[in-house]
């Protein structure tokens, strides 16, 4: 594992910890898109089916279990927790995420590495992850004001994607057989979606001001 990959996994982990911290400390999920969280839960559940068949490393197994467990816990909290669910901004979270699921599944049936059940689900999870942040970004845009922890959550998620791109560049030059087109192209698309958010995040950081997204 190279340093970029590790940095990517760690920023991904931090983003989830920041989100859990926000929900736990404020007993509120305001500003968080339940739809994005449900999509992530689906992404992890479909991608990590290999937990049942392949062993790569302890690190790999633990991280996968953490991602599945935390995403399910967050969805559970936002839907079922007595206090937390009341702060969910349902009227701002109107993105039609079923459309994303249908479109990415259709793409996975057309473009895959191998025509097997597992590989098609793997491709689906990669495509779905690329666009899963959209309901969250739309929600931030709508509410305009972004609270500190929600802003940091999205920032770390974006950083995770950026580090993965550096990781692929590194692997491309250091490993003879590293060509994972589906993951790399989807990863580029996914990172590009954060560009606008990053722009405003850095401006607010530079000016030491509260993060605000233009309407």
């Amino acid at each position: 594992m190279n340093i970029f990959r590790l940095a990517g996994d760690m920023t991904h982990l931090i983003s989830i910890l920041v989100l859990l911290l926000k929900i736990y400390a404020t007993k509120s999920c305001s500003g968080i898109s339940l739809k994005t969280q449900e999509l992530y839960a689906l992404v992890f559940l479909t991608r990590y089916l290999d937990l049942l068949t392949d062993f790569i490393s302890i690190y790999n197994t633990v991280m996968k279990l953490v991602f599945i467990g935390s995403s399910l816990a967050i969805v559970w909290c936002m839907r079922r927790h007595r206090v937390v669910r009341r702060s969910y901004d349902k009227e701002l979270d109107t993105f039609r995420h079923y459309f994303l699921i249908a479109a990415t599944f259709a793409l996975a049936v057309l473009v895959y590495e191998k025509f097997t059940f597992r590989e098609i689900l793997w491709a689906f999870s990669i495509y779905l992850e690329a666009v899963a942040i959209l309901p969250q970004l739309v929600m931030l845009q709508r509410s305009g004001n972004v609270d500190n922890l929600t802003g940091k959550y999205v920032f770390f998620l974006g950083a995770y994607r950026a580090f993965y791109i550096l990781n692929w560049i590194y692997r491309y030059f250091t490993e003879a057989r590293f060509t994972r087109w589906i993951a790399c192209v989807s990863g580029l698309v996914q990172t590009a979606l954060y560009a606008d958010f990053f722009y405003y995040y850095f401006i607010s950081w530079k000016n030491n001001a509260k993060l605000k997204l233009p309407a």
């Binding site: 996994d9 991904h12 790569i56 996968k64 991602f67 191998k114 793997w122 057989r177 590293f178 993951a183």
Partner: peptide
């Protein structure tokens, strides 16, 4: 012939 390398990324 083409055995793809293991999917070791998360």
């Amino acid at each position: 012939p083409s055995s793809s390398p293991p999917k070791d990324e998360l």
